[in-house]
Simulated assay, not measured.
Amino acid sequence: MEICTFIEPQNGASYDEQLAFAAATERLGFAGFFRSDHFVAFDGDGMPGPSDSWTVLAGLARETSRIRLGTLVSSVTFRHPALLAIQVANVDAMSGGRVELGLGAGWHEREHEAYGIPFPARRFGILEEQLAIITGLWATPVGDTFDFTGEHYRLDAAPALPKPVQQRVPVIVGGSGPNRTPELAARFATEYNYFLTGDRDAAARFAVVRAAVEAAGRDPGDLRYSVATSLEYGIPIPEVIAKVDVARAAGADRVYLQFLDHRDLGYLERVATAVLP
């Protein structure tokens, strides 16, 4: 089972602080570094201000060498899918093929109001079309073009370039929706992610998604099943171990440990020492 780190830079994180955390993530032996994709702080004053996920990941791609890098998750409301496909392919090349794309429908209305970003009431249709466009552009053979006509987007003979370095960039779809989320994961994703809090039953959610994957004609083993879980602010190490054990018992292939204090690298090291072995 892989264990990755996960931080919330919108609460206040400079690029150098994110680099320090990502570098420590790599040095300590975690499998990957992932970050949220938001523009308004949920806690604290947010200083020095928000950072764009894919700009930051481009920098980290050049300053790390081993860990996986990605978002958990980017919102479909922030970027046009064709532009996002280009951005992710660029960062994948810059990283030597270590990028993963987490994509979701978005949920935080206030950050949209703050920056004048449209926030449609119905967003699952947008998510479906973005997943179809992004994966379609990457899968189009070199020299061919990609067309798409949907309710929200239209592409006409798109060159479908550049291509990612990876033959198939991992695409993460997550959430607790009973129908649409499992369906979209089954059709487009390489990984389904579930945020584990309280008494949520990840094993039951994984079973629902496996059934959707089978119904879509895919092998359920073709999909990775992961959980994200918050370490709050420095919870005791036995509690961290217990969270990882819960994820393992549920059948997770990967765990994202959410560190809310990205500046506390000493805590990150203690977690690595206790959990990774």
Rank of each mutant, 00 (worst) to 15 (best):
W54T: 14
T55V: 15
L57R: 11
L57N: 07
A58W: 05
L60V: 10
L60G: 09
R62E: 13
R62D: 04
E63T: 11
E63D: 15
T64F: 13
R66V: 07
R68K: 10
G70W: 08
G70S: 11
T71G: 06
L72Q: 04
V73Q: 05
V73L: 12
T77F: 03
F78T: 00
F78S: 03
F78G: 02
R79Y: 14
H80N: 15
A82F: 08
L83Q: 13
L83W: 05
L83G: 01
A85W: 00
I86A: 13
A89G: 07
N90S: 14
N90V: 14
V91M: 13
V91D: 15
D92Y: 00
D92A: 12
A93H: 15
S95N: 12
S95W: 00
G96L: 14
G96E: 15
G97M: 13
E100K: 04
E100I: 01
L103F: 02
A105E: 04
G106Y: 00
G106D: 07
W107I: 03
H108P: 01
H108I: 10
H108F: 14
H108Q: 14
R110W: 12
E111V: 08
H112F: 08
H112R: 09
H112D: 06
E113M: 11
A114F: 12
P118L: 11
P118D: 13
F119R: 13
F119W: 10
A121P: 01
R123I: 05
R123M: 09
L127W: 12
E129I: 01
E129V: 00
Q130S: 15
Q130G: 04
L131H: 02
I133M: 09
T135H: 03
G136R: 03
A139W: 02
A139M: 03
T140C: 14
P141D: 02
P141Y: 04
P141R: 04
G143S: 06
T145K: 03
T145W: 02
F148N: 06
T149F: 02
T149C: 07
T149M: 05
G150H: 02
G150V: 01
G150F: 00
H152Y: 13
A157L: 07
A160L: 08
L161E: 15
P162V: 14
P162D: 11
P162M: 14
P162W: 09
K163C: 14
V165L: 15
V165R: 15
V165G: 03
Q166P: 00
Q167P: 08
Q167C: 06
